[in-house]
């Protein structure tokens, strides 16, 4: 019996030794797994953005985009994130929403900017979305909800346009799971601190919007799709260091006001035309 047990241990050890030895080889590099994944993500990102921007609501006006770009640059530079990889899109929509698409497409609705009281609140949301990108949550969510085989068929053009629309809807109007949201919040606070932006503004934004939510739920996508905003505001506040002083804002108050004024005028003009 002892002999059999000894032999069993040897066989099991042999299997684990072979596994361990093989895992020392960089298979990911040999099989170009990351390259293939990046290629798939790029194709999906472009496909999704093309579909989302079908209505042509993207605002490309320098006056409006530049302040956002400044905030994004500040966050990226302070956290050694490659800013050139992030594709910022400002979209004309009353919906208070911002979301990330594959291949680092960051979509910000004008409604979200108008709902924010200052640039630090907007920086909080941008940091949160960048955290989702950096932590690979976008692709993780897609693979989990849509499935790898369907995603690959999308990139080869063999899936229906309905499936692609559903996937875009999934990313733009539904939350990540609770753990991923918390992970992105914690990372966002870290990004904000390193960028010299007080994270308490981000907490305030969440708290304020969650209070207003029942009055107009259809416009509060970012809040209604991100559950437990109150709880999130609480743990973000807990992560803030009250004694830290933050220097001047990323963009001046004047630039922020000009941006809001531009967006308000544009919104009013659209309403008037309608």
């Amino acid at each position: 019996m002892k002999k059999i047990l000894f032999q069993a241990v040897i066989i099991i050890s042999l299997i684990f030794t072979v596994w361990f030895a093989l895992s020392r080889i960089d298979w990911m590099k040999i099989f170009k797994v990351e390259q293939i994944t990046n290629k798939t993500e790029k194709k999906l990102g472009d496909l999704f953005w093309e579909l989302y921007n079908n209505s042509g609501k993207e605002i490309k006006n320098e006056e409006a985009v530049r302040p956002l770009d400044s905030i994004l640059t500040k966050i990226c530079v302070s956290n050694t994130i490659d800013k050139s990889q992030v594709k910022l899109h400002l979209v004309q929509s009353d919906e208070i929403n911002a979301f990330a698409l594959p291949n680092r497409h960051l979509v910000i609705n004008t409604g979200l900017i108008l709902a924010a009281e200052d640039e630090a609140e907007l920086a909080g949301v941008i940091s949160h979305e960048i955290a989702h990108m950096e932590l690979n949550h976008v692709m993780k969510k897609l693979v989990k909800e849509v499935g790898l085989s369907v995603l690959i068929s999308m990139t080869t053009g063999s899936s229906s346009s309905e499936q692609v629309k559903e996937a875009v809807k999934l990313l733009s109007s539904s939350a990540y799971d609770r753990n991923l949201e918390k992970e992105a919040d914690i990372k966002a606070v870290d990004y904000l601190k390193k960028s010299n932006i007080n994270p308490v503004h981000f907490a305030n934004f969440l708290s304020r919007l969650s209070d207003k939510e029942p009055a107009g739920i259809k416009y509060f996508s970012w809040i209604s799709t991100h559950p437990d905003s109150k709880e999130r505001a609480e743990y973000i506040t807990a992560l803030c260091n009250k004694n830290t002083e933050y220097p001047q804002p990323v963009i001046s108050r004047q630039t922020w006001d000009t941006l809001r004024q531009y967006l308000t005028e544009k919104k009013d003009k659209i309403k008037f035309d309608e």
Partner: peptide, 18 residues
């Protein structure tokens, strides 16, 4: 890996070869 959020890792490929 196919149906959930699990991703392909070096350990997975090594296990399959084992």
């Amino acid at each position: 890996i196919i149906f959930s959020s699990e991703t392909i890792t070096n350990n997975y490929i090594a296990y399959i070869f084992t």
